[in-house]
Nucleic acid binder design. Sequence first.
DNA 1: TGAATATCTGAAAGGATTTTCAGTAATTAA
DNA 2: TTAATTACTGAAAATCCTTTCAGATATTCA
Lengths: 136, 136
Amino acid sequence: MNYNLPLDRNFVGSEAKIEDLKCHPPHPIETEHLEKFSGQILSSEKAQRMAEFFSLLGDSNRLRILSVLARQELCVCDLAATLDMSESAVSHQLRTLRVMRLVSYEKKGRKVFYRLQDHHVLKLYQSVAEHLDETD
Amino acid sequence: MNYNLPLDRNFVGSEAKIEDLKCHPPHPIETEHLEKFSGQILSSEKAQRMAEFFSLLGDSNRLRILSVLARQELCVCDLAATLDMSESAVSHQLRTLRVMRLVSYEKKGRKVFYRLQDHHVLKLYQSVAEHLDETD
DNA sequence: TGAATATCTGAAAGGATTTTCAGTAATTAA
DNA sequence: TTAATTACTGAAAATCCTTTCAGATATTCA
């Protein structure tokens, strides 16, 4: 991703109630403001857990794995062949998805079949897919 | 396995070819199934765009920035003070959020006030927050 | 039994991302 | 006008992630 859009520095400033928020001297006024809703700011701990969840879906190969498993359960080697990934890479990603309880598995002979476990992600997936369709 | 969700338009794909599958012996039953769905796998291009979107939410500091902006617009230095981040780090993150059109900004004097632009993310945000509350 | 297959694993390589650092520019205050 | 404040930026440092590589184990097949 390349984010190289310059900020528009010729922005026409509008009249504002700057007295509401002043950074200096060290935030006497807005500190009160911030305290008012500080109890509603996402805690670092919860932010971390949410970020981990979103990050799970933040990899194209993991998304493709999930999209295939949404259709049918598959063994590792079929997943690898279907997605054109190495079996080792697929296995590593499946472990991540396994640990985070997004997929479950069942061993059959020397193969291991994986399937979706968390159907909640499908709704997120669909929601974002539609969103991207809209804004394109 | 079909979970009966209208996902078909999300699966624009051509990557699954039965002859690519290399499990030995190839599974007769699964192979038939795969053929049925082979045109519906998430394409690499779309997977990439979806992954970029999810990755945006896959950082705890970006999530905390969004959670604060969900309550009120704020300038960079107040964001930095509130979130205990350097102003530079906040500025870098705001740029990515800006480029991806999740926030907009307005310059007032020497301050730049940021606010949420894409309220779609709030729904995703709340959805995952609730999900994590459930499963804890 | 020995060979082939399927999967998993840790470590290292190779990338990508995030923060810090140092500097610049614009605006305001003294 | 000069100093202070606010925000942005590129480059480097520090982190984090993903894949490859080189085995290891278990299962099936001939």
